[in-house]
Amino acid sequence: MKGTSHCRKVKTHLIEIAEQKTDQIPNRNELLSHISSCPECSRLVKHFSRLWSELEPPREREPSSDFLNGIIQKIEEHEHRKISFKTVFGELKPFLRAVPLAALIVLGVFTGKYLGDTQPQMETQSYSQLISEYSNGFEEIPSGSFAEVYLNLNSDEEEGNS
């Protein structure tokens, strides 16, 4: 039974054993003595350690002899594209400056026309609305209020004068 739990523990700590970093393993000495006494664990550790040691970095490779030329070519293509873009842009520059100015003038003309067409209608509408609201206000004076008394007084005076 004890052997089985130790065997399980060996499997859990295989990497630490393979890398010889066993300091952190609890009951390390007990585990190591189990490995030397258990043929199955001993074989497992041996094979696993061999496989794990193969994880070493792969051999470094060299890029092809044309490597640098390839980069230089990419840079030159990029610079050529940049130059040709600059040339085209340079020729168009005077026209490109005039475009926003022309657009601004056209926009100004249309805005002026729109405002000129719509403003008188708005004024007429708002004036007639104001008059009707004003006259409606007199119809809604509650009876017996101070405002009614004042109006009656005024109308009596007007009748007396007439």
């Binding site: 792969p58 470094e60 490779r61 060299e62 890029p63 092809s64 490597f67 640098l68 390839g70 980069i71 990419k74 840079i75 990029h78």
Partner: peptide, 30 residues
């Protein structure tokens, strides 16, 4: 060149791709 090429090779697993990518890396650096 070796450092950049090998890391691209180890991450992609393909020599031709790694070389293209390594060239792009240096182009970007420039």
């Amino acid at each position: 060149r070796r450092l950049v090429f090998n890391v691209c090779l180890r991450l992609t697993g393909d020599r031709e791709t790694a070389e293209d990518l390594a060239q792009e890396v240096f182009f970007h650096v420039y």
